[in-house]
Structure formats: structure tokens, C-alpha cells
């Protein structure tokens, strides 16, 4: 256990001291932030108020809720991306160790390979969680300044979403990273994840704006439900407020469909509880796959 603890400490320190790796992990969330500040925020705001009756738009309280809604959409998008990209960048330490020979140096010692793998896993989880919790805190702070509509349970559920998504990102990156052995592969995976994940999880553009075929494909990806969970817990307070201010239920459903709070699996709406089940189930399945890969690899090397 002490070996595991010291190796976790080593990995976390390395991640935060390697400025390149640390800042690379923040590129996608930063791009998202720039997009929102420069135009995406306004685009969403305009789309939200489009077709709204004038009487509502003249209500200052209503406009404030809309601003709060945009802020919570930014927050949920940012967190959805952060949980995955930071985990991937943090876990690239495992591959970097293989590339620069440090892993060979670790294996020359009698510590078990599984201990090293577990150390990478836990340290990635902790590093990612630290960053995502700080990002979550900043997002909540921003939402509080723009317009706060979240309940205490919403905040806790949002934090729970972050924890589950970070675990998902950690285990997914652990499985992929296990098979990577070169700097080129690190760059390729890093680039793909940074550029693509924001799109496929609906952070840059709502999934509802994609073509029907693509929506169907995306509905098979577990990360989609992670984004939807964050959206629901960040935005449901604002939706309740809109309802209180007189916005018809049908309009709120349209709103929810438009911002991916409602996800449809072959035209059937997926309830929030099912989203949790899908995401947690995926995490458990991926953890089992990762353990299995490690066991098979360890047994193979013992046999050889």
C-alpha cells in the first residue's frame, strides 16, 4: 500500500509539474470558453429568446433567467469536456514513462506491474478530479454572478456527475493508454480527443442540431449521457424558474430538447435515472475490461 501511495504521489506531482501536459489538458475547455465568450453565448441567447412572446422579454426577471440558462449551458459543456480531456492528458504520463524509459526503470524493481497500473489509474483520477472540481467551482461562481437558480441537491448531483464522468474518462484513457507506446501515438490520441470529444459529446454544438443519423450514432456513446446529466443538473433550476414565470410546458420541453437535457434513444426519451445507470454501468464494464487486460498481460509475462 505504501508503494502504491508513493507512486500515486509521484504521478500527481509529475502531472502538475509538467507544464506542457497540464496546459494541453486545458486546451479544449479553453477553446470552449473562447467560443462562448466570442459568439456561441450570444448565438444560444438569441436562439433561446427567439419566438418568445414580447411580454416575457420585457420582464427583466425572465431575461435574467435566460442569461442564467446560457451560463449553465456553458458550465455543463465545459465540465463535460474537461472531465474527459484532462483525464486523457493526465494518463498520458503512463505512455510518456514508456517512451522515455522511466517505465523500464520502474519495472526493473520487484514491485508488481498491477501496482504501477493502479497507481497510474488512481493518480489520473485524483489529478483530473482536482482540476474538474476547481473548474466546477469556477463555473458555479460564474453562474452565481449571472443568475443562480440551482438548488443544493442540484449542486450535489452536479458534483456527483463530475465524479462519475472523471471516473469514466480515467478508465477510458487507461484502456487506450495501455496500448500506446510512442510519442507519435500520444500526439495522435491527444489531438483526436481534444478536437473530437467536444463535438461528439455536444459541448460545442447541441446534439439536437446534428443530423438524425449522427444523433442515433451518438446516442450509443455513454459520454452523451454524461453531458446530458450535467445539463439537467445545471439547468433544471433555471427551467423551473422559467415555468414559474409563465413559460408554457411545451416550450420548456422544446428548450430541453434543444439543449440536450432530453436525450432520445431511437425516439424514446431516456430518463435521468437511466442516464445514471448507463454511465455507471459503462464505468463498471470498462473497469472490468481494464482489470482483465492487466491480468492477461501479467499472466502472459509470467508464462513467458
Amino acid at each position: 500500500m505504501k508503494t502504491l501511495g508513493i507512486m500515486i504521489k509521484r504521478n500527481i506531482k509529475l502531472f502538475f509539474k509538467d507544464k506542457g501536459m497540464f496546459f494541453t489538458s486545458l486546451i479544449t475547455p479553453l477553446i470552449l470558453l473562447v467560443l462562448y465568450v466570442s459568439f456561441l453565448g450570444n448565438v444560444y441567447r438569441d436562439s433561446f429568446i427567439m419566438n418568445m412572446p414580447d411580454i416575457l422579454l420585457k420582464n427583466e426577471e425572465f431575461v435574467k433567467v435566460i442569461d442564467g440558462l446560457v451560463a449553465s449551458q456553458l458550465a455543463s459543456s465545459l465540465l463535460a469536456v474537461c472531465c474527459i480531456t484532462v483525464a486523457f492528458c493526465s494518463n498520458m504520463l503512463m505512455v510518456q514513462d514508456k517512451v522515455n524509459g522511466a517505465y523500464q526503470d520502474l519495472l526493473i524493481a520487484p514491485a508488481k506491474k498491477t501496482t504501477l497500473s493502479l497507481a497510474y489509474f488512481i493518480s489520473t483520477f485524483i489529478s483530473t478530479l482536482i482540476i474538474c472540481m476547481i473548474a466546477g467551482g469556477c463555473c458555479l461562481g460564474y453562474m452565481a454572478t449571472v443568475g443562480w437558480y440551482m438548488s443544493v441537491s442540484d449542486v450535489f448531483l452536479l458534483l456527483l456527475d463530475i465524479i462519475i464522468l472523471v471516473t469514466f474518462g480515467t478508465v477510458l484513457s487507461s484502456i487506450i493508454g495501455y496500448f500506446l507506446t510512442s510519442q507519435g501515438q500520444i500526439s495522435a490520441v491527444g489531438t483526436i480527443i481534444s478536437s473530437c470529444y467536444g463535438f461528439i459529446c455536444g459541448a460545442y454544438m447541441p446534439i439536437s442540431s446534428f443530423s438524425e443519423g449522427l444523433q442515433k450514432v451518438i446516442s450509443f456513446l455513454p459520454g452523451t449521457y454524461g453531458t446530458a446529466l450535467l445539463r439537467n443538473h445545471a439547468m433544471q433550476g433555471a427551467f423551473k424558474e422559467l415555468e414559474r414565470l409563465g413559460l408554457p410546458k411545451e416550450s420548456i420541453i422544446d428548450f430541453k430538447n434543444g439543449v440536450d437535457c432530453n436525450i432520445y434513444f431511437f425516439d424514446k426519451q431516456v430518463p435521468v435515472s437511466t442516464m445514471f445507470v448507463i454511465l455507471i454501468g459503462t464505468v463498471i464494464a470498462l473497469i472490468m475490461i481494464y482489470v482483465l487486460i492487466n491480468l492477461i498481460k501479467t499472466k502472459k509475462s509470467e508464462k513467458a
Binding site: 508513493i6 507512486m7 509529475l14 522511466a102 514491485a111
Partner: peptide, 17 residues
């Protein structure tokens, strides 16, 4: 590990034994 101190490096390697 080039980013860690000498002490941290030796501590992590010693732990492996």
C-alpha cells in the same frame, strides 16, 4: 523523472523495493 526533485525521485524508486 526530470521534473521531480532528486529526493522525490529516489523516494519513489526506493518505494518500489
Amino acid at each position: 523523472d526530470k521534473d521531480l526533485s532528486v529526493y522525490d525521485n529516489l523516494q519513489s524508486r526506493a518505494a518500489l523495493y
